[in-house]
Design a binder for these strands. Structure first.
Lengths: 355, 355
DNA sequence: CTGAAAGCGCTTACAG
DNA sequence: CTGAAAGCGCTTACAG
């Protein structure tokens, strides 16, 4: 069924020229005479010729492909029917990267890694010649592995990937975001005692957010009790479970539970509700990311907005610059900003953003 | 910075063998003597050799790459700061496809198309030699365009892509899902009058769901008023706006608003709330898909569950079979099933699934 | 302005 | 069991 695709040789024969000339027509070489070009073009059209990008890539040493490596969901689908949480945040980055790559004529090769595959580097290694550069999310590569790849192919690290001299990094301003969040909670709502629901502990974004929260609460004279740092895994399902456990062992809740991302805030609010606690009346809850659905939650979620798609686009720009050997900052920090809604205690038209 | 990668020639020289032998070692040809193989392997390790998959692909006529084409979000980011809705449903399919492809040793090449690019077929065409097969979502290709591609490369259509003899289709059982939903609404809640919030009108899944709803309401003696068919676009933001407009022109609401997907249900519930209408007390609302967050909404969303990741995996299986010229059904219909929660009017432990 | 030829990095009959 | 050589589909100096 799959019929043989015509090659440049078929076109050349049909047009009565050499394959070199066909190639020139294909690549808009200006030296070509219009008549010749037309002849070739006609032959291409007649044969429905499509150039083979793989062959082109091999010959030119450039594939016009960007590789994107990410972790697949850390949650196993334990409960038979419950689909694993989708990590919305990552998905939006993927789309941002894809769109920007396409804008520059690149395709995106997806490559996922998982906990179950201890050798996170193997798939990357194998594909590394198929790709002109890598964008690596999360904890796919650890610090020692980065240089091994980046020696051959430029890498941009993002979305929680650790720092490395051997690669470029695009990160979000966790510190500024958390600082303005805490400042709002203290000034507008008189919050003194803070809790934190953590993402996967090794994740650099999680580490940064926790540290930022520690700094900010100290600065504002608030407190962050060790018992109110709830270990979790970025997912709603995990947050639901961990919040229950936390409620079981704590009688004395903080004024606010700062969650390291929106999805955990969703699970936490749900668990609190199931225990008869009302947000924000009994405890405030905040998120981080501002996923599209955050404003439709009940209560609408106060969170720190970051533009994941903009980060994805930025990562592509940095990568392209690196590929072209243009000067680029080693680390790019993208702005974040406080998005006030109702889960912090602010009032407003139902569903309106307060600020 | 990007250092030259060693080739098979470097390895051959170092190991003192021919490139043919290196290639055999690479491909586990059994005729190779163990000593020879070891010699080669050592040389590879010493040089940190990684085979070039592009060259391999060219030579073998097989790239070990599956292409996935999707539409990017139909919503333009009008409101300056509001990120376009992410189409969660598509993202989950992408992940399902990626995971299954990886399981079979294939990488995924992403290729998005958009309304703004009228020639939806162009990117597919250009990449078609880089890929061993296509999975095409949504309305990327119209019926006339399918054979043009599938003549050269097998195609699996899914997620709302139209039917075509020239391709395989993986679809969800819209009819069964809607039928059991209507049956529940009628039998358990005495619903008689139905409304429908539609996805993009051209979308085959939308067409199928609307038709299924028409059939089911007729069968149950319910009614579906034309004025209660609300045109929308699959997104929460769109649903919020359209629900408002609908409320403005209708005094007499139906018993239930059946939404063509979960995201629109979210927006609709939100808009209803803003107008002081309580779900399910004043009107029931249902979704379709069962996105992970559906159970955390307030009220928890009654919806028709489909497993998008399973559909993605199935699409890969069908594609691989087609590539191998194995016999496969032209259309595969995946099961859907009613997921009862609270937005239909059912009670239960807060947050527990009712059925 | 265009063709003949070598080369991109691999694979695979064909010999031996 | 292994090597020499042609080939996968393109590109690009080098001639002319």
């Amino acid at each position: 069924m799959a019929e043989q695709a015509p090659t440049i040789y078929d076109v050349a024969e049909r047009a009565g020229v050499s394959v070199a000339t066909v190639s020139r027509a294909l690549n808009d070489v200006e030296s070509l005479r219009a008549v010749t070009r037309d002849k070739v073009m006609r032959a291409m059209a007649e044969l429905d010729f499509v150039p083979n990008n793989v062959a082109r890539g091999l010959s030119r040493g450039k594939n016009w492909v960007i590789g994107l490596a990410f972790m697949h969901s850390p949650v196993k689908a334990n409960e038979a029917e419950v689909e694993a949480d989708s990590l919305l945040y990552t998905d939006i980055i993927i789309r941002g990267v894809e769109a920007q790559a396409a804008r520059h004529g690149y395709s995106l090769l997806l490559c996922s890694a998982g906990e179950e595959h201890p050798d996170g580097i193997a798939p990357l290694r194998n594909l590394t010649q198929s790709v002109d550069g890598w964008i690596v999310l999360d904890r796919v590569l650890n610090v020692e592995e980065v240089p091994e790849i980046s020696r051959r192919t430029p890498i941009v690290l993002m979305a929680g990937a650790g720092d490395s001299d051997a690669a470029f990094t695009v990160r979000v301003d966790n510190e500024g975001g958390i600082a303005s969040l805490v400042s709002h909670l203290v000034e507008a709502h008189g919050a003194r005692r803070f809790g934190y629901m953590s993402g996967l502990e090794e994740s650099p974004d999680n580490v940064a957010r926790l540290r930022a929260l520690r700094d900010a609460t100290r600065r504002w004279g608030g407190q962050l009790n060790e018992e109110d740092i709830v270990s979790c895994d970025w997912t709603s399902g995990g947050a639901e479970v961990q919040t229950m456990r936390w409620l079981d062992r704590r009688v004395d809740l903080p004024d606010v539970l700062v969650c390291a991302n929106d999805q955990m805030a969703v699970g936490a609010i749900h668990a609190l509700g199931a225990r008869g606690l009302k947000v924000p009346r009994d405890i405030a809850v905040t998120g981080f990311d501002d996923i599209p659905i955050a404003r439709y939650l009940t209560p609408a979620l106060t969170t720190v907005r970051q533009s994941s798609s903009a980060m994805g686009a930025e990562a592509v720009d940095v990568l392209l610059a690196a590929m072209a050997n243009e000067p680029v900052a080693n680390t790019t920090t993208m702005a974040s900003r406080l998005q006030i809604r109702h889960s912090c205690g602010c009032q407003g038209e139902l569903g309106e953003d307060v600020a």
